[in-house]
Design a protein around this nucleic acid. Sequence first.
RNA 1: GGCUUCAUAGUUCAAUGGAUAGAAUGUAGGUUUCCGGUACCUAAGAUGAAGGUUCGAUUCCUUCUGAGGCUACCA
Length: 614
Amino acid sequence: MIQIGYLCCLLGIIKSNYFIMLLVQKQLIEALQNGLSSLFQIQANDLVLQETKKEFEGSYTFVVFPFTKQAGLAPAAIAEKLGQFVLENYSGVKKFQVVQGFLNFSFTDEVWLNALNKIIQGSQKFSLDKKGEKVLIEYSSPNTNKPLHLGHLRNNFLGFSVAQILEAAGYEVIKTNLVNDRGIHICKSMLAYQLMSQGETPETSGLKGDHLVGKYYVAFDQLYKAEIDVLVKQGLDPEKAKKEAPILLKAQDMLLAWEQGDQVVMDLWKTMNTWVFAGFEKSYAQMGVRFDKIYRESNTYLLGKKLVDEGLKEGVFYQKEDQSVWINLEDEGLDEKLVLRKDGTSVYITQDMGTAQLKFEDFGAKKSIYVVGNEQDYHFEVLFHILKKLNKPYSYGNFHLSYGMVDLPSGKMKSREGTVVDADDLMAEMVQTAKERTMELGKTDGFTEDASNELYQQLGMGALKYFLLKVDPKKRMMFNPEESIDFQGNTGPFIQYTHARICSITRKSKELGIELVDTHAYNTELSVTEIDLIYILGQYKSIIESAAEAFSPSLIAMYAYDVAKQFNKLYNELSILKEEDENKRNIRLTLADITGKTIQHAFSLLGIVSPNKM
RNA sequence: GGCUUCAUAGUUCAAUGGAUAGAAUGUAGGUUUCCGGUACCUAAGAUGAAGGUUCGAUUCCUUCUGAGGCUACCA
């Protein structure tokens, strides 16, 4: 017989960040194992419990179907015997119910109050114990030929959030950003600028640096298309025309000149890059993302070329007649892949090899995560194979966090054609909408101007980040501008509102001189709503763990929503400050407090601020 | 063509092989004179098609249909 006293003692010696609900499960599983063994002589080591569906009574469910053959009984009969055994041998179980082959268990209030007391202790520090392991995460990866767009927002929010989650899960995290600041596409906007700008600058044009450069990237494409049209009308094959358009040839020459260090080209490149970086810095500040180290492709591609030389000597790569360098990955089920052009200039994957080496030299992390869209799945498969063939110490532990594209109701975004949702514009719009909504409700009366503006930022960005992060990263998602600025339902502001409301309760209770109690007596009766909330709150640390394993902020987002919803239910059903029974009032106040802290922490993992008043 | 990912209420998203497939939104109705109504409660509404494996399939396998991505000496 497992006594409550024993249970408490056991809970006491377990370190504070032990997952509270897992402990309750563990006790139950042990009892079930004993039951299976003594009733049916079945030795089962890996029993799994499920959460009981909410239309049934109980918290955990044990499925007995898999044991029907071994036990030689009908599912319901096994469940009945097993349930009885557990009830008699484990005092934490209050009752059990059998529905077909499903065995549902309910726990006593003591178990829940005990769990609550552990949750209070655990809420001192939500993050998990240090794992002593270093993880490098690369995200954002902008190109310096155009401003950031909606797709980058998903990337940045995702990368930053995963970094936060990994840190909370106990990893040492290094955030890096690899800027693609060289290559033919950069030359395209440079060339167009040379031809058409008449020397305009961010200052003279009044445009943000990245937007100014992006203007010329679009201009290049228009010119390029016009030239192709002309060539095709002259009777040239369209495919050939694409390769022979004069402006494209000029861009290629420029890339070559760049790699040879041509002074004029380098000067222009530096100037335009400075503009773009200044623009990006503003965007990153608005997004609220940070990096420990920014790499530039222009600094890593030479190292990549060196690795190509090395691999060529070792026979990993081979050279074709035109001097281009390739790798054959047919044994891995892939094709051959170019790693160096015939003119000796490097391609995307060349510099990625160099960057991998450089990152390893700088930080020596064994795990490295690349947050890059799923249209590059093939690229990363190739890259990881190449690194393994080169037999580098950083060949293993690489992971491509491949996320789905963001679709618009109007279709796919194409930056060359200008059909993109600009990141800066979108963020500004979100903040503006937050402002309008909040002012309509008169919620910022009594706020200073700075405080209101800060609040609009928090709400607008909260709505946007939550909208993009609540979806499973792997999946492609639809961005509907109208829905993204909703403040009701499964949205950031709804959860922020719940937090603000809790802060208000806490303020009131302080005014009334009520102190939070950190250990609750076991003899108070709990309602189902309270138990449900304790149950959810007790899961938080294991949610962090799962989110870290799956690199999925959406698990955190969904959890935060569940917490907020469950609290609002309780708030509507039960009184907190007005409750006359002091024990009950204290328990509810504690629940409010922990709920608020949990939301605040979970949202911080998403990069979202939870205001105290809104 | 080859490889690959996806397909769930009107719409946007959930569901380690488990129960009557959950939410949100929209629609229709309702809420204690309430600790902050951006809240809460109720109702109707869905697994692309056909097979197979299984006690049990949204989930695994096959075929088909439809949509995306890759298949660039772009990044």
